[in-house]
Amino acid sequence: MVTPMAPFDYTQQFVDGVVASLSEDRLTPYLLQSKGDRVKAIKLYERNIAVSEGFYSIIHILEIALRNTVHRTLSKQIAEEWFDQVGLSAFSAKNVAKARENIRKRGKDLTASRIVAELGFGFWADIFRVNGLWMNHLHHAFPGRQRKDIHVPVDAVRKFRNRISHQESILARNLSDDYARIMWLIAEISPETAQWADRQSRLQAWHLETDLPSST
């Protein structure tokens, strides 16, 4: 049986230490939201961490599902190493080269699956910018959708993911819309995976605008 943790005592010494460690600049959005109350600001910071962790898990699922459906579609339409045979942007081509370099450094064989797994979310968002690739091949991954239908929300998730990765505050956002956008994209790839992601998500039970978890 797990023993419940005792309530944390936000003493002046504790608050001073945390503020000094995190810095006033980093805490500014939370201090503004709490009207200068440093204890409330720290608790909002804790809340931001918890919500960011919750979003990271479903973005993780989206990223893997997205790259797999793109790779599966383009492998079938073109070749397993499609990334060497299509007109990628300079950004995406640089990412492929970097992926190869990282795999070589680890002493692993350069396989298509390893290269695909090494490519980050930015690559998968960028690939939907290429209209010719969508028109000729990639639309098969999303029947009935226009390129912008997928590119716009994927790019929005990319920007949101970057905010989380850089430990920025996300509490002022419309988090319900962020959640719905991510789940819609997963469902476009696999309704079953979307149901599973929603069911296991820590965010699923929260009313994201009014009932976020905190230490209070």
Rank of each mutant, 00 (worst) to 15 (best):
D9Y: 08
D16G: 09
G17S: 11
V18M: 08
V18S: 09
S21C: 06
S23K: 10
D25G: 05
R26S: 09
T28Y: 07
Y30P: 12
L32G: 12
Q33K: 13
K35M: 05
G36H: 06
R38F: 03
V39Q: 07
K40P: 00
A41Q: 10
I42R: 07
K43L: 01
E46K: 00
R47V: 01
N48E: 06
V51L: 03
S52L: 03
G54L: 00
G54Q: 01
F55A: 02
Y56Q: 04
S57Q: 08
E63P: 02
E63W: 04
N68G: 01
T69I: 09
K76V: 00
A79C: 03
Q85C: 02
Q85T: 01
V86G: 07
V86Q: 11
S92N: 14
K94Q: 15
A99N: 14
E101R: 15
N102F: 04
R104P: 00
G107V: 05
G107E: 14
L110C: 09
L110Y: 07
S113C: 04
R114K: 13
E118V: 03
F123G: 15
A125H: 13
I127P: 15
I127L: 12
F128N: 13
F128G: 12
F128W: 14
V130R: 14
L133S: 14
H140Y: 05
A141C: 08
F142I: 04
G144R: 11
Q146C: 03
D149L: 07
